[in-house]
Amino acid sequence: MTRITVYLTGGIAAYKAVQVVRNLEKQGHEVRIVMTKNAEHFVTTNTLAALTKYPVLDDLWEKANEASIPHVHLARWSQLALIVPATANFISKMANGIADDTASTTILATKAPKLVVPAMNDQMWNNPATQRNIALLKGDGVHVMEPATGMLAEGYAAKGRMPEPEDITAWVQDILDENKILKNKTIVVTAGGTQEAIDPVRFIGNRSSGKMGIAIAQKAAEAGAQVKLIYGNVTIPLPKANNIELIHASSSEAMLKAVEDKFQHADVLIMAAAVADWRMEKVADHKLKKNPEQDTLSLTLVKTKDILHEVSSHKKANQVVVGFAAETNDLLKNAEKKLKNKGADMIVANDVSNNVFGNDQDQVVILQNNTKIEKWPLMTKQEIAGALIKKIANKLK
C-alpha cells in the first residue's frame, strides 16, 4: 500500500481522473486529493471526498485551515504525487517552481516522487514552451506519461488526449514496482527496548522508543519486502501493512528466540532494538515489599545472551546482518570493536548522549568491513531508514 496524493487540475479530462482515483483505491493504495479551483468546474470536491473519505484540499485560506499548515502536512504524508490531468499551466508552474495556489504550493513542498499525466490540445502540447517545461521536469526526475493520440474535446483526432484510466493506473503501478528494491526478500527487524522482570510488578528497562526500528520496518515494507517486526517496549503506534508481521518479545530471551526462529528463512536481520545486557539471576515470584528497616536492595544480575553475536555466528553466506551501536562516548572506537567482535556485516552507530531517545532526528555513522566509514548528516529517522534500506538492497545485489 502506498500513500498517494492525486492532483486534479483544470482540464476537461478531470472527469476521467475520478476513475483513476477509484482504481488506485481498489489496488489498496491510500489516496488523498488536491484540486485547483479550475478543476472544480469539471468535477466537484464532494465526489472526490466521498470516494476517499477524506476532505479535498483546495483552499489554504479556509477557516478550518487557519490554525494549521495543511499543504505541508499533506506534502510530508505523500509517498507518491500523481498529477492527472496535468494542464500546460500546471506543468509550467511545476517546471519553474511557481507556487501561487493550493495545488502548486503543495506539489512544491513534497519530496515524494512525482508522476505527471499531461492532457491538453495538440497545439498546446506541441508548443515549444510546453516541450521545454516537460524537458525540465524530466531533468528533475519527474515521470511523464506521454499523451495519447485520439479524439480531443475540440472534435478532431490528435496527440494530447489523456490516456485511459486503466492505462494510467498500470503505469503508476509499474513505477511503484520499479521502486520495490526488496521485492521477494524477507527482512527481520527488531525495535524498541526489552524489559527484564525483577518481580511480577517491576522490571529493568531502557529509554528506547522504537522509532528507528519501526521506521526501518516501514521503509522495508514500502520497498516490497516481507517484514517480520519483532518489537519490545515501544512508545509509538505499530505499523499496519499486509506485508508486516508483528511479533511481540518483551524480554531479551524472548527476543532471541523470535529472532532465531524468523531469521532462519530470511535474507536480512536489522537489530535496531535496545536489548538489555543484564537480567535477574532469579525473578521473584511475588512483589518485593519495601521493609521499613531496609535502606538498600541488592539485585543479582547475570549477562543476557548477545543476540547479534549469536545470530551472526551461524548466519548463511547469503544473509546480511546489520547491528546498531548506541554509544555515549568513544563512538567510533566502540562501533569498530562491535563490528569486529559481533560478526555483523554492518554497524549503524549513533551517539545517544544528546537527547536521541524518542527524538525524530538522529545522526549516524555506517561501518562495514574493508569499507570507508560513512558519516551521515543529521536526518529524520524516516530518512535514515530509507537510506539504510537502499544500502542494504545494494548489498544484497
Rank of each mutant, 00 (worst) to 15 (best):
R132T: 12
T130V: 08
G150C: 04
L136D: 05
H143F: 14
P147N: 12
L136V: 09
M124K: 08
Q131I: 04
V144M: 07
Q123P: 00
P147T: 11
L136C: 01
H143V: 15
R132F: 13
N127C: 08
T130C: 11
T149A: 09
P128I: 14
W125P: 08
G141C: 07
W125L: 11
T149Y: 09
D140G: 00
L137I: 01
M151P: 02
V144R: 03
M145H: 07
M151K: 11
M151H: 05
G139S: 08
M124A: 04
I134V: 14
G150N: 06
D140P: 00
W125S: 03
L137G: 03
K138I: 02
P147F: 09
P128W: 13
I134P: 07
T130W: 04
M145N: 11
N127T: 10
T149P: 02
Q131G: 12
W125Q: 01
M145V: 09
G150E: 09
D140L: 02
A129M: 15
L152Q: 04
M145K: 15
Q123E: 14
G141R: 03
N133L: 08
N127G: 02
M124C: 05
N127E: 07
L137V: 00
P128N: 12
K138S: 04
P128R: 13
N126G: 08
M145L: 15
A135S: 13
E146Q: 11
V142R: 05
N133A: 03
E146Y: 02
D140F: 00
